[in-house]
């Protein structure tokens, strides 16, 4: 174990994690006896080819889906054996989600989308509203869009609102599944800037992506192949102008056959 790992502390740990999908009579193993540690404060990026099991791993780590076998421990608490409702309570306390598509609740305003998540956990509504406003402003979403519906704002704005929603309960980990996948490059960059900024403030993030520019934001890159970790690369804190860091990542990915 490296020193940095000890310093940071393990927030999620998996042991012999397996996930098999059954379609009819056909069984398709996606995650194969996967052992992995995720560290607190890291911006962990999961990469891999299509069908490697990136999203499956992400949703298993976040308690969104149950593994077929193996153990997942979150902050020292095993979550693999939890019931659906226990997992729901676990998620609201520990996880924030940013999805690829605009998965804001379409019958609610931007502000309500944030509060609908925050009110699940917070008893002080007044404080929560203030936190939501602060976060929205920090992320560049001004007051004039707070009362708009998801269909009335741009994709980038909706995705940033999604990030605020993910952060409102101060989760231990933010899980992001290709957060820039449905955005244009400018909007995608803005979203990544936000994620980098919150990570700078010590927010743990696990992000699945197949985009190199997105992957650069991470300080730890995990590469999956056929449901197992093929390799990982530690990059250090993100710096836009750090060419050496970028080269290291490219070299790593080339080595992985990306």
């Amino acid at each position: 174990m490296k020193n940095s790992e000890i310093e940071k502390g393990i927030i999620i740990s998996t042991s012999k994690l397996c996930k098999t999908f059954t379609i009819g009579t056909t069984k398709q193993p996606v995650l194969k006896s996967l052992d992995l540690n995720v560290y607190s404060g890291d911006f962990t990026v999961i990469m891999g080819s299509s069908g490697a099991g990136k999203s499956t791993l992400l949703y298993a780590l976040s308690g969104m889906d149950k593994p077929t076998s193996g153990e997942i421990t979150f902050n020292g608490q095993p979550i693999s054996g939890m019931t659906n409702d226990q997992l729901a309570v676990f998620r609201r306390k520990n996880c924030g989600f940013v999805f690829q598509q605009n998965l804001l609740l379409d019958n609610m305003s931007i502000m309500d989308n944030v509060l609908s998540c925050g009110l699940l956990l917070n008893s002080s509504k007044k404080q929560l509203i203030q936190d939501a406003k602060d976060l929205l402003l920090q992320i560049g979403l001004t007051e004039n869009i707070w009362n708009k519906f998801p269909t009335q704002v741009s994709g980038g704005e909706a995705q940033r609102a999604g990030i605020v929603r993910a952060l409102i309960n101060r989760p231990h980990v933010v899980f992001a599944d290709e957060p820039t996948g449905s955005l244009n490059s400018a909007a995608g960059r803005a979203v990544l800037d936000v994620l980098s900024e919150v990570n700078r403030l010590n927010q743990s993030i696990i992000m699945v992506t197949h985009d190199l520019n997105s992957a650069r934001r991470g300080n730890r890159i995990i590469y999956l192949l056929d449901g197992a970790v093929q390799g990982e690369c530690l990059l250090g804190p993100y710096n836009q102008d750090d060419r050496e860091r970028q080269d290291k990542l490219q070299q790593f990915l080339l080595g992985m056959g990306w």
Binding site: D85, A88, R91, F99, L103, L105, S116
Partner: peptide
Amino acid sequence: VQKALGYT
């Protein structure tokens, strides 16, 4: 989405 956010 609600379930993902933690609604039981």
